[in-house]
Nucleic acid binder design. Structure first.
Lengths: 203, 203
DNA sequence: TCATTGGGTCAGCTTTGTTGACGCAATCAT
DNA sequence: ATGATTGCGTCAACAAAGCTGACCCAATGA
């Protein structure tokens, strides 16, 4: 992995070992930069739209995940976002009051609330998505399919076990809103995450 | 690969072209997920350390960029972070008071403040870096050199022109803390960015 | 029947961003 | 040399989105 990839920074004075060490470190610092700038600009588009509507990034996340998985319960959503009930509430309640998100009682367990986008919610989510799509599509096209594959691989690698599981459930093949195998282990897996495992602050 | 995955909310019926379209969309939505989870876990490590010290992510960013480019002026730093003077101030002032960052008057222009890490600042930045290094190194190793190259390419592609320029200046070949070609065009380029071009909120 | 679970809510605190308005010193242009 | 501009600092007030702790209700399930 070391040799070819680099070319980076001139490194200046150096013995061989020093150089290797330096290159690796520079590589990692570059990764930090890339994630900072990249993520920032990735979110900039939707942020602008949201601001006009008096919403923020947190609203977008809810819309996004409900768009991906209509029928998520409140608890599952909490597990995905890894925030507290109260934090979610402050964003979810307005979204429901303004008619972007609708609730329905769970069929298996009537304590649960199944969340889904209303047509207005879908429209807004769509709009935010399209804006972000421009950014990502451009990046993907500039980079090419092989790079995209690599990008995915690395991003997945940055994630901890919980996030990987959450991602699996989100992008898994079993598309149905309320999956065929709904509670069995899915609930068991989601439950511990309800009180976020990683206390994480997430810009 | 097409048929199983659909079921999407409104999607409903589908012809061939529709399906292609869907695949692209699923790819992009996956990218959104990856960036959300990936970035979150990427920052989780340092966040934990910082919390113990009563600091936040904003402090880390300052330490990081000063670590990369000792001798940055306040204005340049503002341009990189794309936040307001006041926001930076609230984080920079404590960092100086607690002895992590030192100022020195600019030599060419004595109005400027050249910022640099003190030894304590370097130590802290190092600690944060090492923590993050674990995360990134693991991801890089799991993914392999080709993927890393792709990752970089895509991340760069997500960035707007301003961020690309900032990144160039940061990772550029001219390593010296206070570069040999300091003011000439560097200042000219940095200046317009001083009042952030993108109003951006940046988690 | 009664403890547990899923969900909601009140109240208060923190971090990190934002505006707007000034003040001071150094630089630059007329 | 004077006056405008620029680089930096600071006061004040506000907003978004996290957090904790304390309670409450209704549905489940042992």
């Amino acid at each position: 992995m070391p040799e070819g990839m680099d070319t980076r920074a001139g490194a200046g004075p150096a013995g061989a070992g020093r150089n290797l060490l330096f290159l690796r470190e520079e590589e990692l610092r570059l990764a930090q930069d890339l994630l900072f700038f990249g993520y920032r600009d990735f979110t900039a588009g939707p942020d602008a739209i949201l601001a006009e509507l008096g919403m923020g990034r947190a609203h977008h996340r809810v819309l996004h995940f409900l768009g991906r998985r209509p029928g998520l319960t409140v608890g599952e959503l909490l597990g995905i976002l890894a925030i507290t009930k109260q934090s979610l509430s402050r964003v979810l309640t307005p979204l429901m009051q303004q008619g972007y998100v609708a609730q329905s009682p769970g069929r298996a367990d009537r304590r649960q609330r199944l969340l889904a986008l209303t047509p207005e919610g879908e429209a807004l989510e769509r709009r935010l998505f399209e804006r972000q799509r421009e950014t990502v599509t451009r990046a993907y096209r500039e980079a090419g399919p092989v790079a995209v594959e690599g990008f995915r691989h690395v991003m997945r690698g940055l994630m901890g076990p919980d996030a990987r599981k959450a991602l699996e459930r989100l992008s898994g093949t079993d598309r149905p809103s309320v999956r065929a195998t709904p509670p069995a282990d899915a609930r068991a897996a989601a439950r511990p995450a309800a009180r976020p495992v990683v206390p994480g602050k997430t810009p």
